[in-house]
């Protein structure tokens, strides 16, 4: 048995709002990266843009599915809710969220590894999807994989910040460190819904920092 939603009922509306903000920031970063790619035609900028596009799609799926649950079932569903008990549309929505997030994170890990070997990307994607499909508790496996990918990405950004010692590199490193902590928090959601709320709040802080960095870049 695996669980679809562990949001406390009082937090459900905020959860939808937060996901909407995350999708806006992710699409904004993706579009900005793509305009830069059009100017310099550097392949890692293209993959970076694609990764944020998929992360944005993942939050879009999450927003739509939570919006659907909220309007059709109500916020009383949250607690331990089996994925099997949701109808087909909800199942597709949640599966899309997992798939797009893992796709986005795998591409971002591949980009930060600075490898030109596509086999690494296929390995990351194949490994993630196999682990999810073979898992008994797919949501927990998804959180474990995502937390692992965020750790790898944060390692790259921390290394970049230490090497360059600039305000914008530090801002991105801190925001991804906070994101990683938030996703590690999601791992403990089955113990208490408060871990989910804490994770979401950390995610919000991280996305505000990413957006702040975006504003600084646009001003240059």
């Amino acid at each position: 048995m695996y669980y679809a939603c562990l949001t406390p009922p009082w937090f459900f509306k905020w959860d939808i709002l937060f996901d909407f903000l995350f999708l806006c920031v992710a699409f904004l970063i993706s579009a900005f990266a793509f305009t830069i790619y059009r100017k310099i035609e550097q392949s890692n900028v293209k993959t970076f843009s694609i990764s944020f596009f998929f992360i944005g799609l993942s939050y879009l799926s999450q927003t739509l599915i939570n919006g659907y649950i909220f309007t059709h079932i109500g916020n009383g569903i949250c607690g331990y809710l089996a994925l099997e008990h949701l109808n087909f549309i909800s199942f597709i929505g949640i599966s899309a969220h997992l798939f797009f997030m893992l796709l986005g994170l795998s591409i971002l890990v591949y980009t930060t590894l600075q490898s030109r070997e596509p086999k690494i990307l296929y390995l990351l994607l194949g490994g993630s999807l196999t682990a999810i499909l073979l898992s008994r508790n797919r949501i927990s496996t998804f959180f474990i994989l995502s937390a692992l990918y965020f750790t790898l990405i944060t390692w790259h950004f921390m290394d970049n910040a230490f090497k360059k010692k600039q305000k914008n590199t530090l801002l991105i490193a801190i925001s991804f460190l906070i994101l990683t902590l938030g996703w590690i928090g999601f791992l403990f959601t089955s113990y208490s819904p408060l871990f989910y709320v804490t994770g979401k709040l950390l995610e919000l802080i991280a996305f505000i920092l990413i957006f702040w960095n975006y504003r600084l870049l646009r001003k240059k």
């Binding site: 970076f48 930060t112 646009r218």
Partner: peptide
């Protein structure tokens, strides 16, 4: 014209 912005973006994300 966009060099500063491009440079800052690439540096931010270590690209």
């Amino acid at each position: 014209k966009d060099y500063d912005s491009i440079k800052a973006f690439l540096e931010s994300y270590g690209l």
